[in-house]
Simulated assay, not measured.
Amino acid sequence: MTLSPALSAAVAHWALASPAFVTETATSVLYRVDHADHGPAALKLLKPGAGDDEAQGGAMLAWYGGHGAARVFGLAPDAVLMEWLPGETLGDVARAGRDDAATLLLAEAVERLHARRDAPPPELTPLRRRFASLFRLGPDAWPEKARPLAARATAIAQDLLDADAPAQPLHGDIHHDNILRSGDGWVAIDPKGLIGDPAYDYANSFQNPEQADALVLDAARVARHATALAGRTGLPRRHLLAWAVAHTALSGAWNIEDGTPFAHQVAMLPLLLADYEAG
Rank of each mutant, 00 (worst) to 15 (best):
A219G: 15
A151N: 01
D197L: 05
R129M: 00
A153C: 02
A153W: 05
F131E: 04
T154P: 03
P169M: 13
H225S: 02
A141E: 04
T227V: 02
A150E: 01
R181A: 15
G172N: 13
W186K: 01
P122C: 08
H239S: 13
A246N: 12
Q158G: 12
K192Q: 13
A199T: 12
T248H: 04
L149T: 00
P169A: 13
D177S: 08
T125K: 10
Q211K: 15
G183W: 12
D173V: 07
D140W: 01
D140M: 02
K145L: 11
T154I: 02
P120D: 13
R128S: 12
D197P: 10
G185T: 11
A199C: 14
G138N: 01
D213F: 00
A220H: 14
L160F: 08
H247M: 14
A165L: 15
F206Y: 15
D197I: 08
A212D: 04
P191H: 03
V222F: 05
S133W: 05
T233L: 07
T233S: 12
V222R: 06
L217I: 00
E144A: 15
L194E: 05
P191A: 02
L217W: 00
A230K: 04
T233Y: 06
N204P: 05
A141V: 00
G172H: 05
L240W: 07
A228V: 06
A223T: 15
P198H: 07
P191N: 09
Y200S: 14
D159F: 00
P166W: 10
E144Y: 03
L241E: 08
L229N: 09
A151Q: 14
S133V: 13
L215G: 06
A188W: 02
K145M: 05
N178A: 05
L124F: 11
P120S: 12
R136V: 00
P209M: 06
P143E: 10
H176A: 13
R232N: 02
D184L: 12
Y202G: 01
A242H: 11
G196C: 11
L180N: 08
A244F: 06
S133N: 04
A223H: 11
R130W: 15
T248A: 14
L235V: 15
A228E: 09
S205D: 05
Q207D: 06
